[in-house]
Amino acid sequence: MKLIPSPRHIPMLATAVVLVGAFSLGSALYPNFASWGVIRNLLVDNAFLGIAAIGATFVIISGGIDLSVGSVMAFTSILIASLIEQHGVHPIPASGLALILGAAFGLGQGALIQAFRLPPFLITLAGMFLARGLAFAIHPQSLGIRDPFIATTINESLTFSLPLGPRGIQIPLTVDLFIAAAIVAWLVLTGMRFGRAVHAIGDDEHAANLMGLPVARTRIAVYGISGFMSAFAGVVFALYQQSGDPASCKGMELDAIAAVVIGGTLLRGGVGSVIGTVMGVMVFGLIQTMIAFQGDLSSWWTRIVVGVLVLTFLVLQRGVEWVGRRRN
């Protein structure tokens, strides 16, 4: 094994350093910070963001961007809340339908981007508006989900207990779903032809085309996956909140993109990893947690710190690219 990391791994290593550093800082500053409970809450509170960020990882590695994430999540949450509470649909088919709609929505965006060579940010910005409007069209206000299947079966029976800490910690299903999604996405991106093609078109689309890769199919599928993951995140959000809300998740796409960038994925495309994204989400969550522990700082500090971190990572990426060019 080489001891000097390849330049493409430097941003991810930086993420790991930031993650460990933030956790150590938190532990040093605040009593009770270094506890299983804090780690559990980190996972529980950020599971839906994590799932959305995994979808965004696909899009960003392919060299694109998806701004419709938050709206699709809101749409999904209110859709399943309405289906369950107002139309008496069982939660499982309701979630299934939401996932299919999310994937279809993403595929549609991808098809428009690919077929008409339109800028992804514009199409997905329009998608963001469309999904938000449709969410309000389903139901104009927040809607609680009281269905026993969700409240009892999913959120209680399927929660399992880990013998960690003095009283053990409860891991709800949403965290399992997040971890499962991360593992599947990691397998697809690192070990399947499709995943490698996603990297290739993000790195050099022209070359990928001449190398005979299915560029059009791959790009459309990437947006389909992002739509699906947004809907999935919306379902998890609804489970977490036990409600659907058309006004929720505003700006979630920015949080997801920020987590992906902090996770070491190049916004230019071509290089990135799901592991990095998961770490990025954890960093994001840690910042929120630390600000909460601090007590006298308001929550908007999160956005500023995240903005600074994103900038730092973008500059780091530029620097790595520059060093790489100099070396040749």
Binding site: R8, M192, R193, R196, A197, H199, A200, D203, D204, H206, A207, A208, L210, M211, G212, L213, G270, V271
Partner: peptide, 20 residues
Amino acid sequence: INLIPHMSLAENISLGREPT
């Protein structure tokens, strides 16, 4: 030279027709 810069030499040789 149409190859993918941020991939390994090995992967560039079989990209798109990797044995699965």
